[in-house]
């Protein structure tokens, strides 16, 4: 391995905003690293790439990227991104946020954007907790784990996010942990090569809150656990992807299908209704990155 003395993804980051707010051992930065590498490898047009986040630790991602960055309200990154994309389909729009933001307060928008097949890449950092507010129970929190608002252990059924996205019609669904940096990078690249609603779940450690409260060690321990507990199963039935407390984590790329995006379906419908007098709405590039 060759030695590098500058950060290889520096050009994608707002270095004047470093250091980030993320704790040592947090996985969000790792995921951003993968994202930046995927941007480089895929030769994405950075001028046309825009990142939208909601609120939370992962919601800060947009603000560290040297791209058009939108840090919106809690849970509403997807509808904001929907407006951006539909108003200018040339844009490569990425939603980057956490599971509390996207699947709890923003859950309704997640399912509807997937249903409509809005052309967005959603990267959901799932650390099983609300980090920024101090470690509360989240919609993916595994049964038995304890939280500041579930001090006697979580007993609700958590969301299986890949299954949720799949059921609602996402055209690409994958899950990786922050241990799987190469696979995650490749998966993001793969998603850049598709059009429609794409969803990547990134299982990520929160050493400060989730790990510590549940006596799971630090960030490094989380990496060891991910390495041991992960089961690679590309193409797995998404119904089988539940995650229990410290249970095996099935990772892989699960869904890769094609169906008309919102704008494509709209144009098809309107052309059939109005005939040749209808001027089709611009559909944008057939995929975010031509090389993929």
């Amino acid at each position: 391995m060759s030695q590098v003395d500058t950060n290889p993804v520096k050009e994608y980051l707002r270095m004047d905003r470093m250091p980030s707010i993320w704790c040592p051992g947090c996985g969000i930065g790792t995921s951003v690293n993968c994202f930046a590498r995927a941007l480089t490898q895929a030769k994405v047009d950075l001028k046309k790439t825009t990142v939208v986040s909601g609120i939370g630790c992962s919601g800060r991602v947009s603000g560290y990227l040297e791209l058009d960055s939108f840090h919106t309200t809690h849970g509403r990154a997807i509808p904001f991104a929907t407006g951006l994309k539909l108003a200018n389909p040339e844009l490569n729009v990425v939603v980057y946020s956490g599971e509390g933001d996207l699947a709890a307060i923003g859950g309704n928008h997640l399912i509807h954007a997937a249903r409509r097949n809005i052309d967005l890449l959603v990267i959901c950092v799932n650390n099983f907790t609300y980090g920024m507010t101090g470690g509360q129970v989240s919609p993916t929190s595994p049964g038995g784990a304890t939280y500041s608002t579930a001090p006697y252990g979580q007993f609700e059924t958590p969301f299986n996010l890949p299954h949720l996205a799949d059921s609602c019609g996402a055209v690409y669904v994958a899950r990786w942990t922050t241990f799987h940096v190469r696979q995650l990078t490749k998966s993001i690249r793969e998603a850049f090569g598709k059009k429609g609603f794409r969803f990547i779940e990134v299982i990520s450690p929160c050493p400060t809150l989730y790990q510590r409260r549940n006596k799971l060690g630090d960030g490094l321990d989380a990496m060891k656990f991910y390495k041991e507990a992960s089961v690679l199963k590309n193409g797995a039935d998404t119904r089988e992807l539940d995650i229990g407390f410290q249970s095996p984590i099935i990772v892989g790329s699960f869904v890769n299908r094609d169906r008309p995006s919102f704008i494509e379906a709209m144009n098809k419908r309107f052309t059939s209704v109005f005939g040749e007098s209808y001027k089709p709405y611009p559909e944008g590039p057939s995929k975010a990155v031509q090389g993929c």
Partner: peptide, 12 residues
Amino acid sequence: AASITLQGAVWA
């Protein structure tokens, strides 16, 4: 959603 989707469109 409606009240923020339009803001995305404005920034586009």
